[in-house]
C-alpha cells in the first residue's frame, strides 16, 4: 500500500459509509456474524438432510449483508418482524445459534420451546417479534409495534423485513399507508431476491423497482445493493434517523439473491444454473465484505481464519446443545394456547 493511499484509508474520509461510522472491531464483528448466519444455515441444512430436523426451512444464504446491514444501526430494544426466510434476521438482531438450533430440533430450550420451528423463530428479548409463515403477515404487526412506540413514547424503531413476494399482498399496501398517515417510526425492508417462490418479480410486479411503491404512500423509497453491507447499513442508518426524528417511515428495497431454492422442495426449474453460479461466484455478500475489510486493512488473513474457526466452534456447540436438550412432554401439548393464570 502506498503512503498516500494508506493516509486516505487511515483518515477513512473517502471510504464507504460503514468504515467511517463504525470501529474496526465492530466491523470485524459484522463479518463474524455474517459467517455465523451462513454457517448456521449450512448446519441447519445438513441436519435436515441427515433427518435430525423435520418440516421444511427457507434458507437466506446469499442475503447475509442485507440482514446485517439493516440491523447494524438498530439498538437492542428496537424491534423487528421477520419472514419465513428469517434465520439471518434473527441472528443479526442478537439471537444465540444454540437456542435457534434447539428450536429447529423441536426442543424445550428453543426460542419457542419447540412450538414454532424455523418458520416462527423469534427472540422477543432481543426485539425480534418473530418470523412469519404468512407472506406480508408481519408488516401490519410492525406498524402496530411502531404505533405502540409512538403512543408509549419509548423511542423504539421497528423494522419489518419482507420479501418481494409480499409487495403484492394487500397487507403491504394497507400497512404502508397507515404508517405514512400516522408518521410512525417503522422501516419497511423489502429483500428482493428476484423470486416469490418460482415467480420472478418481472412476471409478478407491475413496477420495475419495488421501492417505487413508496411514492404511492409519500415516503422515501430507497434502492440498495443488498449484497453490499455498507450500502444497506447506510440506507438503514438514514431511515432509522428519520424514524427516530418522528418523520415517519421509509421503504428500503434491498436487491439480493438467495443461493438456495425457495424451500426444501424446490427443484430450481425457474432459474438457470448459470444465474445461480454467477451470483455465488461474483456477488457473494460475505466475500465482497471480507475483501473490502482486507483491502482497507481492517483485517488480515489470520483474522479471517480466526473468525471462521470461532464460528465453526459456535455452530458445532450449538448443534450439540440442541441434540442434548430435552424434548417437550406430550402432556404439555396445550400449553401457551392461552396465557396461564397464576
Amino acid at each position: 500500500m502506498t503512503g498516500a493511499r494508506k493516509a486516505v484509508i487511515d483518515s477513512r474520509a473517502n471510504l464507504p459509509f460503514v468504515y467511517r461510522q463504525y470501529s474496526p472491531e465492530q466491523l470485524r464483528q459484522v463479518l463474524h456474524k455474517m459467517y455465523l448466519i451462513r454457517r448456521f444455515e449450512e448446519g441447519a441444512e445438513e441436519c435436515y438432510t441427515r433427518g435430525l430436523i423435520h418440516g421444511t426451512m427457507h434458507l437466506s444464504i446469499g442475503q447475509e449483508a442485507s440482514a446485517m446491514g439493516i440491523c447494524m444501526p438498530l439498538a437492542e430494544d428496537d424491534q423487528i418482524t421477520s419472514t419465513h426466510r428469517g434465520h439471518g434476521h434473527c441472528i443479526a438482531k442478537g439471537a444465540e445459534v444454540s437456542r435457534m438450533f434447539a428450536e429447529f430440533f423441536g426442543k424445550t430450550t428453543g426460542y419457542c420451546k419447540g412450538r414454532g420451528g424455523s418458520m416462527h423463530i423469534a427472540d422477543v428479548a432481543k426485539g425480534n417479534l418473530g418470523a412469519n409463515g404468512i407472506v406480508a403477515g408481519g408488516i401490519p404487526i410492525a406498524v402496530g409495534a411502531a404505533l405502540s412506540s409512538k403512543m408509549m413514547k419509548t423511542g423504539k424503531v421497528v423494522v419489518s423485513f419482507f420479501g418481494d413476494g409480499a409487495n403484492n399482498e394487500g397487507a403491504f399496501h394497507e400497512a404502508l399507508n397507515m404508517a405514512a398517515v400516522w408518521k410512525l417510526p417503522v422501516i419497511f425492508v423489502c429483500e428482493n431476491n428476484g423470486y416469490g417462490m418460482s415467480t420472478s418479480t418481472a412476471r409478478s410486479t407491475a413496477v420495475k423497482n419495488i421501492a417505487e411503491r413508496a411514492a404511492a404512500y409519500s415516503m422515501p423509497g430507497v434502492i440498495v445493493n443488498g449484497n453490499i453491507f455498507s450500502e444497506v447499513a447506510e440506507a438503514s442508518f438514514k431511515a432509522v434517523e428519520r424514524a427516530r426524528a418522528g418523520e415517519g417511515p421509509t421503504l428500503i428495497e434491498s436487491k439480493t439473491y438467495r443461493h438456495r431454492g425457495h424451500s426444501k422442495s424446490d427443484r430450481n426449474r425457474y432459474r438457470t444454473k448459470e444465474e445461480i453460479e454467477d451470483w455465488m461466484a461474483n456477488r457473494d455478500p460475505i466475500t465482497l465484505f471480507e475483501n473490502e475489510l482486507r483491502d482497507f486493512g481492517f483485517i488480515d488473513d489470520k483474522g479471517i481464519e480466526a473468525i471462521r474457526d470461532a464460528v465453526a466452534r459456535e455452530i458445532a456447540d450449538g448443534i450439540e446443545f440442541a441434540k442434548a436438550s430435552p424434548a417437550p412432554e406430550i402432556a404439555t401439548l396445550e400449553n401457551y394456547v392461552y396465557t396461564e393464570h397464576a
Binding site: L129, P140, V143
Partner: peptide, 11 residues
C-alpha cells in the same frame, strides 16, 4: 394487524 402489533408490544 396494527392492533395485533400494538397488543404484543404493550398496548
Amino acid at each position: 394487524g396494527v392492533a395485533v402489533g400494538a397488543a404484543v408490544t404493550g398496548m
